[in-house]
C-alpha cells in the first residue's frame, strides 16, 4: 500500500513538473514575441524628468511623481497587511525572553548602531540623487529595529522602541502622505502634484531639490520602517495566554 502511495505521488509530481515546465516554456515564447515587437517610441522620462520634477534619479521621479498614485497604493498595501497581521495575531507580548547575546557583542553593537543609522538616513534623504529612496531606506531602518531585538533581547528593545510608537508613526505617516496629495487638489492641478503646485524646485543635483519628492521619500521611509518593524514584532511575539 505504501508503495502504491509512493507511485501515485511520483506520478503526481511528474505531471506537475510537466505542467509547470510547459507554462514556463510558453512564458518564454510570449516574452520573446513581446520584446520582438518593433521598438516603441520613448516616453521621454529620461529626457524630461529633470525639468519636470527636479529629480536627477529618474526611477525616483517615476515612483514619487509621475506614478505617485501607485506608490500611495503600495504604501496602503503595506499599511493594510500590517493591520491584517495585527488582527490575525493578537497584540504582541514577550513573556519568554530569547537568549541575549554576549556582553562583547552588545557593547560593540551599541557603539555601531549610530553608524548603522547613517546608511538608511542617507538612502532616504538622497533618494532623488542616488539609487535609493523611501522604501529601500525604510527597510534598512526596520532591520535596525530587528537587530536591536536580536542583540539586546525583546524586553529592553520594547522599552527603547515601544510598539505604540511604531504604530502611531505608521498611522501618522500614512495620513500625511494622503494629505500631502490633497495639496495638489487644492491648487487645482491634480492629486499628488509636485512642482505644478508651486513648491520650489531647487537646483537639480543638490540635496534640497525635486520639490515634494524628498518629503514624500521621508514620509514613505518612516511608514515602511514603522510598518515592517511592527510586522516583525507581531510575528515574533509570544501568544497571549487566555486565562
Amino acid at each position: 500500500m505504501n508503495q502504491s502511495y509512493d507511485t501515485s505521488k511520483k506520478i503526481r509530481h511528474l505531471l506537475a513538473g510537466i505542467f509547470t515546465l510547459s507554462l514556463g516554456a510558453s512564458l518564454i515564447w510570449l516574452i520573446l514575441e513581446a520584446t520582438g515587437m518593433p521598438l516603441t517610441p520613448d516616453l521621454g522620462y529620461v529626457m524630461n524628468s529633470v525639468g519636470d520634477t527636479g529629480s536627477i534619479n529618474v526611477v525616483t521621479a517615476i515612483l514619487m511623481d509621475y506614478r505617485g498614485f501607485d506608490t500611495l497604493g503600495e504604501a496602503s498595501v503595506i499599511f493594510t497587511s500590517v493591520a491584517v497581521t495585527a488582527a490575525i495575531l493578537a497584540e504582541p507580548v514577550f513573556t519568554l525572553e530569547r537568549p541575549i547575546l554576549s556582553i562583547i557583542t552588545r557593547r560593540a553593537i551599541a557603539y555601531l548602531v549610530p553608524v548603522f543609522f547613517m546608511f538608511p538616513l542617507y538612502v532616504i534623504t538622497h533618494g532623488h540623487l542616488s539609487p535609493g529612496g523611501g522604501f529601500q531606506g525604510g527597510v534598512s531602518l526596520a532591520v535596525l529595529v530587528i537587530l536591536t531585538h536580536v542583540v539586546f533581547g525583546h524586553n529592553l528593545a520594547m522599552k527603547k522602541i515601544p510598539f505604540s510608537l511604531l504604530t502611531m508613526g505608521e498611522y501618522w505617516a500614512a495620513l500625511s502622505f494622503g494629505i500631502l496629495g490633497l495639496l495638489g487638489i487644492f491648487t487645482g492641478v491634480g492629486f499628488l502634484a509636485n512642482l505644478a503646485t508651486g513648491v520650489p524646485r531647487g537646483i537639480p543635483g543638490q540635496l534640497l531639490s525635486g520639490g515634494l519628492i524628498p518629503v514624500l521619500n521621508l514620509i514613505v521611509g518612516i511608514k515602511v520602517a514603522a510598518g515592517l518593524s511592527s510586522l516583525y514584532i507581531t510575528l515574533e511575539g509570544n501568544p497571549r495566554r487566555k486565562k
Binding site: F69, L72, S76, F79, A83, S164, T167, M168, Y171, W172, A174, L175, G178, I179, G181, L182, I185, G190, F191
Partner: peptide, 20 residues
C-alpha cells in the same frame, strides 16, 4: 473623480488613528 478613491483611503488611515 480621484476624490472618490482618496476619501475612503484617507478615512481608513484616519479611522485607525481614531480607533487607537
Amino acid at each position: 473623480p480621484v476624490l472618490l478613491v482618496v476619501t475612503p483611503l484617507i478615512s481608513a488611515f484616519l479611522l485607525s488613528l481614531v480607533k487607537k
